[in-house]
Every structure is written in structure tokens, then in C-alpha cells.
Simulated scan of single mutants.
Amino acid sequence: MYFEGYGYRGSTFEQTYRCYPASFIDKPQLETGDKIIMPPSALDRLASLHIEYPMLFEVRNTAAERASHCGVLEFIAEEGMIYMPYWMMQNLLLQEGDMVFIKNANLPKGTYVKLQPHTTDFLDISNPKAILEKTLRNYSCLTTGDSIMVAYNNKKYYIDIVETKPSSAISIIETDCEVDFAPPLDYKEPERPKPTAPPTAAPTAEAEAEEEPMFTPFTGPGRRLDGKPSKDLDASGSSPAKRQANATNSVQPSTASTSQSTAPRKTTGKLVFGSGGNQSSKETDKVLVRNSFDPHGTTALVLGFPASHVVPP
């Protein structure tokens, strides 16, 4: 039976085979590693070339431009055919009976590999390190970009080979290799709680009133219109509260009476200041000053008209 590329040439092993999954042969252990089964003729050719052990191969799907690396388990396949793990066929985008190119390869011993599980379920295993070490004993080499399968407790876990050192393909046979893990593909970082700022209470009208400077009118000392010292108001610049008390006490009914009134008129809330030293008998000489109080307790002096023109409050 002749297949395209069947036969040997040159000083290296290069061969094209039809590939089939391991389910086509009674070798279930193939699925737990990266080793393939080749025909006996391949062993003869490899022996004649004095290929060093362990035998490692580059596996390439030329049509899809995908490549990986593997080892060999046995040489018992039919001529022109090879059997490989199904997960490897998935990496290479191969279907049953597709043609695959095989070439022997020499890979350096690995010193570092970074793995990334597909799901967080792999981290739920009680001892993932021990499971991984046991699984990798069935592997000969690792290639950056591949996805290997780890079987445990009747479940399959897929892990990506994110990075390998010192090259993109390494041998892991009898070597001490540092293993690092990247976060799983479906891992989501928990959202950090946002700091809650304490609610700022809106300033009340009273608080604003306390903060804003208040305007206090008529804070100066009271003075008479005729220039003489005042007897009713404190001219020494006392406090507004004291002046308010003095002003309140000074608001008393006037004893003066007008010539036009036949009966005494009540003048509560008014202060009468004369133009001279003594009170004049003329009403036109009298000036009324209305004594009113502002909301802040200070006395407001409002000049008025002559008494004959002032309407009683």
C-alpha cells in the first residue's frame, strides 16, 4: 500500500502518514500523554539513522499550518498509518484519515513552563500539583500554544501551554522544570467594594446664619440733635444689648402737652428732643424722633416732622 510521501530519504527521518485517533486501537493510555504509535518500518529507518533516545518528533499539519511535538510509544501501527491522542489531533486541526507530516527533532531540556487551566475547576482539586506531576510523566515534550489534557476523577481538564523556556518546544524527560500557573481562562476577579463616603448633610438655615457675618445697623452711640450730651442713651459706646435695655427703659410717656390739644395726648414710643437747653413752647420747634427697634435689638432713630405733622402711632 503506497501513500504520498511514503519512503525514506536523506539523513533525517521525514515521513507523511494518515493519522487516526487512539480510539481506533486498543490503547486507551494514549489519551493521557503525548506519544504516538508508528509502523515498524519507521523503527527500521530510525535505527539506521542512529537517532538518539528519547525519540522526539515534529508533527505538522501542512494544510492548516499547525505544528506540535510528540514522542513515540510503540511501532505496531499498520504501514502508512499512525495513531495519536485525540487532543493532539484537535490542536493540529486534524480529522480522521488526514495526512500529517512527521520529522524527527532534537529538543532542549526544559527549565520553565507556564500553564493556564481553561476552567477554575482545576484549582478545586485538593492537590493539583501532585495530579499535574503524575500526568506529565506520560509526556515527552511540551510546545508553546498547545493545550494538553489532564484526566482526574472521571473528568477531563484542559490546560494551555502559555510559555516554555529555553525554547518554544522543550523536552521534559529527566529534567527539573519550574512550573508556573496563570489565572484560568474563565477566572473573574472579584469586584472591589467602592468606598462609601459619609453623606454630607445640607447646611441648615441656622448654620448658614451662624457662618455668614451679620449686619448690625446703628451700632454707634446716640447723640442729641442740638449737640448736647444725651441723658437717655449711653454715649460711651456700650454693648448693643445694654443700649437696647437703656432704650427700652427710656421709652416712657411724655409729659409735654401741646397748646392745640385740649386733653393730654399719649406719646408712648416717642422721644422728644428740644432745640435749646429748655423745651420750647412752640410745636414747630419740636422735632419728634420715632423710637423703633430692629430685629437685632438695636435702637433705630428715625428723624420725623414737627409734632403738628406727626400722626400718632
Rank of each mutant, 00 (worst) to 15 (best):
S261V: 06
D98S: 06
F24R: 15
V162E: 08
G7I: 06
C177K: 03
R265S: 01
G297S: 02
V311Y: 08
I102H: 00
Q95A: 14
V289E: 04
S239N: 14
S41F: 04
L123F: 10
I148R: 00
G71I: 02
T164V: 11
A201R: 09
S254F: 03
K270Y: 15
Y152L: 01
A209W: 08
Q116T: 11
C141N: 06
E96H: 11
P195C: 00
N246V: 09
E65A: 13
L107R: 02
A77E: 01
I173M: 13
E31G: 06
S308W: 07
T62G: 01
N249L: 11
N91M: 04
A241E: 13
P199G: 06
L288V: 15
A241D: 08
V310P: 00
I161E: 00
L271W: 04
Q29L: 09
A205G: 03
E206I: 04
P198L: 04
D176F: 11
Y139P: 02
E174P: 01
S171N: 12
D294T: 13
E74S: 13
F13R: 01
Q116M: 14
L56P: 00
L123V: 00
E79V: 06
M99R: 12
R290D: 12
P21G: 14
K35Q: 08
L225T: 06
I170V: 12
P229T: 04
E79M: 07
L43F: 13
G145Q: 03
A201L: 10
N291R: 10
A209N: 09
P183C: 03
D121K: 13
N127D: 12
L185V: 14
S280G: 03
M89E: 07
G237Y: 07
S68R: 01
Q29F: 06
P108D: 06
A77Y: 01
N291H: 14
K231F: 04
T219S: 13
A42Q: 04
G304C: 08
V287E: 05
P198Y: 08
I131K: 06
L301V: 10
E178W: 08
L43C: 09
S261F: 09
N246A: 15
K282H: 10
A169I: 03
D146C: 01
K228Y: 07
Q252T: 13
A47T: 14
T262M: 10
S238P: 02
S254E: 08
M38I: 05
M81S: 08
T120M: 14
E78D: 12
S257M: 12
S230W: 01
S275G: 08
T216S: 14
Q252S: 10
E211L: 15
F215P: 01
